[in-house]
C-alpha cells in the first residue's frame, strides 16, 4: 500500500453547459488526508469541479476517480454517502430539528436510533454547540455561524473519508468567519479527512489549504503548496497575492 493513497483523481476532465465549457483539461490528484483549496474568481469553475466529485455532475469527457473507481461506476447514492458535503447556503432542512438534521445520513443508512443520538450529541460537542441547548431547536432559531457549524456536523455524521466544502464560511460576518476558520483548522488536524475546499478568499486559502489550486476560465493555472504559491509569477496568482498584500498591510 502507498504511504499516500490517492483519494480523488481527475483525468482529462471537461464539462460543458451547452456549447460553453465550464471546466476543461482537469488533471490532478488529491492525496488522502490533504486539504486542497480551489481558489478563483466567481464563475471560474470551482464549484463545477467540486460537484464532479460527488457526481452531482458527470464529466462530458475524461474520468473522475474516487478511491480508484470512476464516479460513473459508483452507485451515486453510495458515493454521496461516503462524501460529506457542505454548501454556502448550508441547506439545513428547515422542518427538521438540529438533531434530525445532523442525523440525516446515519438514518438514511438505517443506523439504530440510539446510535444516531449518541453520534449527534458527540458531533454537536465537536463543532462547539452545547447539545442540551441546541439539539431540539430548528435551523431558523440559530445564527448564521451556528447554522454553519451544524452544516459541518451533518457532513461529518457518517464519518465520510472525504469532505467537500463550497464556500462554507462565505456568508458569515468577518469575525465569525475567522473564528470558524481557526476552529475548522484544528478540527481538520484532529480528523485527518481528505478535504476539497472552494473559496474566492485567498486569506482563507492560505489558512486552510495544504495545497492551493488556482482556477481561471475553467482550468488550473497554478497548483502549489502555499509556500510555492507565493512565488508564482502567473498574472492571476499575482492578482490574488496583491489583494492579500493589501489586506495584511
Amino acid at each position: 500500500m502507498d504511504v499516500m493513497p490517492i483519494a480523488v483523481e481527475f483525468q482529462q476532465v471537461a464539462y460543458y453547459l451547452g456549447q460553453r465549457s465550464l471546466v476543461l483539461n482537469l488533471n490532478f490528484r488529491i492525496e488522502s488526508g490533504e486539504t486542497l483549496v480551489l481558489l478563483g474568481r466567481s464563475g471560474c469553475g470551482k464549484t463545477t469541479t467540486l460537484r464532479l466529485i460527488n457526481r452531482l455532475l458527470t464529466p462530458a469527457q475524461g474520468e473522475v476517480r474516487v478511491e480508484g473507481i470512476s464516479t460513473c461506476e459508483w452507485n451515486p447514492i453510495q458515493l454521496r454517502r461516503r462524501i460529506g458535503y457542505v454548501i454556502q447556503e448550508v441547506g439545513l432542512f428547515p422542518h427538521f430539528t438540529i438533531e434530525r438534521n445532523i442525523g440525516v445520513v446515519p438514518s438514511l443508512q438505517k443506523w439504530e436510533p440510539s446510535q444516531i443520538k449518541k453520534r449527534v450529541l458527540a458531533l454537536l460537542e465537536l463543532v462547539g454547540l452545547e447539545p442540551d441547548r441546541f439539539a431540539q431547536r430548528y435551523p431558523h432559531e440559530l445564527s448564521g455561524g451556528q447554522r454553519q457549524r451544524v452544516g459541518v456536523a451533518r457532513a461529518l455524521a457518517a464519518d465520510p473519508p472525504i469532505l467537500l466544502m463550497d464556500e462554507p464560511f462565505g456568508a458569515l460576518d468577518p469575525i465569525t468567519r475567522v473564528e470558524l476558520q481557526q476552529e475548522f483548522r484544528q478540527l481538520q488536524q484532529r480528523l485527518g479527512k481528505t478535504i476539497v475546499f472552494v473559496t474566492h478568499d485567498i486569506q482563507e486559502a492560505f489558512t486552510l489549504g495544504s495545497r492551493i489550486g488556482l482556477m481561471q476560465a475553467g482550468e488550473f493555472v497554478v497548483m502549489a503548496t502555499p509556500e510555492e504559491f507565493v512565488k508564482s509569477t502567473h498574472p492571476e496568482a499575482q492578482a490574488f497575492l496583491r489583494v492579500r498584500g493589501e489586506w495584511n498591510s
Binding site: 451515486p76 458515493l79 454521496r80 462524501i83 441547506g91 432542512f93 451533518r154
Partner: peptide, 27 residues
C-alpha cells in the same frame, strides 16, 4: 423548495424518493 435544500439533500445521498417524501412534500 429552496434549490440549496434540494442540492444538500442530493449531496447527502438521498434517493429521489427520499428527497420527495422527507423534504419536498413536507416543505
Amino acid at each position: 423548495v429552496d434549490p440549496a435544500i434540494r442540492e444538500a439533500g442530493m449531496g447527502l445521498g438521498m434517493t429521489d424518493r427520499q428527497l420527495l417524501l422527507q423534504v419536498e412534500i413536507p416543505l
